[in-house]
Amino acid sequence: MKIRLDSVEKSFDSFRAVRGVSLEVESGELVALLGPSGSGKTTILRMVAGLEYADGGSIHFGSVDATDIPVRDRGVGFVFQHYALFPHMTVDENIAFGMKVSKQKRSKAQIDARVADLLRLVKLDGLGSRFPAQISGGQRQRVALARALAVDPKVLLLDEPFGALDTNVRRDLRRWLREIHQELGITTLFVTHDQEEALDLADRVVILNDGQIVQEGTPEEVCRQPSSAFVMKFLGDTNKLKAMVTSGVAAIGNARIEAPGFPDGAVDVFLRPADLDWANEGEGISATVARVIDKPSGRRILAVTESGEAVELDVAPETVVTAQQRGVVTIERARLFASA
């Protein structure tokens, strides 16, 4: 089922949480709403679910205007960050709940069979008679997903689904959710503040800030062509250096960067640590090493440029470099944005 949001608005008291968001999620697509806290991503998800009503704009499911359909009749599966499993019901009863309260009557045998199928799907066979307090966090989240899927929702909505879990469980569940999505092909929208999670899992990433969409695209698009300094910074570690543009070329120290289309004057250059390298001499920014941090995949140099700006760069593990050493930071790739 295709989801379409058309200039959706939402305010809480005087705080404008969502400001005119328009968004389309194709049928069967897996889309991430990514943004820092307070960016309105959860509010958007809750409005799609019907847990909040939009102050303005409309939300369509397929050709149906769902804006004013209450959550009960909207036919969405919602997975909460803290699972929201019914603590007084067993895993089986939790999964069966939606089918039991449904207007569409099912026999007990039908419900039992469906519960067994779902338990198999989420790989929790044999745990059906446990209570939520008796299973681990990762298992609880899988039960929550099975419960949401039990009522054959038109769309699946997940609010920070892995936020409360530790890193390893999180990575496993991510891959597993991707597989389930491939198997069921259900339109899925999920919220996260973790860019790695969004890039790892989603077909398309929608980046939000201050209640507005700042960029949307495939993980490749948002990573390779960030549309703003915000997106650049939000997606990963980045250095910001000041540069001067003269006739289409930006200069930082002795380095020159093509800056087509930029007017003469100050500009911000954004550089990821991996876009930089270290050399003893050559064309680049003169700097002094402050510290070297060793990591399994390479070395990170924390350096200070001649003009006093801090720079971090990732270099190959073989690079010989020590603190206090003077040298040159060379630029392999850079992204320019007008000075803010």
């Binding site: 679910a49 009960r72 449904s102 949401a148």
Partner: peptide
């Protein structure tokens, strides 16, 4: 409010949510 919201999103009525959740 999570439990009530979960129950309602699964299609339970207000009374049903109150009595079973």
């Amino acid at each position: 409010r999570d439990l009530e919201e979960a129950a309602t999103s699964l299609g339970a009525s207000g009374w049903r949510t109150f009595f079973s959740v």
